[in-house]
Amino acid sequence: MELVTPEIGLVFWTTVSFLVLFFLLAKFAWKPIMGAIDDRERFIEDSLRKAEAAKDEMARLTNENEVLLKQARVERDLILHEAKKVKDQIIGDAKEAAHTEGARMIELARVEINNQKAIAMADVKNQVASLSLEIAEKVLKQQFADQAKQDELVSQLLKEVKL
């Protein structure tokens, strides 16, 4: 039963030991422990503030990035539109130049054909004249004396020659 009811001396010395320990802890350990706890609490609060600031900055940067992306898309669309207009204009100019050059070449070919035709006609006329002279020469050689035969021969030769 001694364990259940302590003696007065044990209670006294236990109380004295507790008070001495409490005094020593209050004097030497309490302030550093509380300082460390306060420092840790301030560090955590600063970290939370910094994290919140970083979160706000990240949101701001995200918004800026979205705005920049929208602007870049608009600029890209403008550049593509301008490039398409320039491409269409270049193609149109090239087609027009090709048509003009084709028409010019056709006209040159037409002039060349007409020139060649005129040259050929002149050549044919020269050949006809030459043939006429040959016919006349033959007529004169064969029948120089008889006029009726000469007329008949010229008519016959003219019928044979066809242009």
Rank of each mutant, 00 (worst) to 15 (best):
A94S: 12
I91A: 11
Q89D: 13
E75P: 00
D46M: 13
L24Q: 05
A148C: 09
L25Y: 14
L153P: 00
R42W: 10
V128F: 12
I33V: 13
L48M: 13
L157W: 06
F23V: 07
S17I: 14
Q147H: 07
L68Y: 05
I135S: 05
N65F: 05
Q116V: 10
E7C: 15
G9L: 15
P32G: 03
M1Y: 07
K55N: 06
V16L: 13
F23L: 06
M1A: 02
E160R: 04
S47A: 14
F43P: 04
S130D: 12
Q147E: 09
E134H: 10
F22L: 05
L19N: 09
G102N: 12
R110M: 02
E152F: 10
M1G: 06
S132C: 02
G9K: 15
L48I: 12
P32S: 09
A83E: 03
V86H: 12
A122Y: 10
F12H: 15
L153R: 09
A118Y: 04
F144A: 12
Q71Y: 02
G9F: 01
E107T: 06
V124T: 01
L61F: 06
W30H: 12
V128S: 01
A118W: 08
I37T: 13
L158T: 02
D151T: 11
V4N: 07
L69G: 09
L163V: 07
M1N: 07
L10R: 13
R60F: 00
K27N: 08
R73L: 02
L21F: 13
M34I: 15
L10Y: 13
S130E: 14
R104K: 10
E134S: 03
E7M: 15
S130G: 12
I8N: 14
F22N: 07
I90S: 04
L68V: 05
N126F: 12
A118P: 03
E45Y: 01
A103M: 15
Q89W: 04
F28S: 01
T14V: 11
I106F: 06
A122R: 00
E75L: 11
K50I: 03
K87F: 09
T5C: 08
V86L: 12
D77Q: 07
F144C: 05
E96F: 04
Q71W: 01
L140R: 14
I113S: 05
D39M: 05
S155Y: 02
Q89A: 14
L153V: 02
M34P: 01
I119N: 04
M105L: 15
T14W: 02
A97G: 00
K84M: 03
M58V: 14
R73E: 03
V11S: 01
N65V: 01
E64T: 08
D93L: 04
S130M: 15
W30L: 12
T62S: 13
T14G: 15
E66N: 15
A83F: 09
L19P: 00
K149Q: 00
E52A: 07
V86S: 12
E96S: 14
K70R: 10
L80C: 08
M105Y: 15
L3Q: 13
Q150F: 02
K84V: 03
S17A: 15
E45I: 05
K50S: 08
E57M: 03
F18P: 07
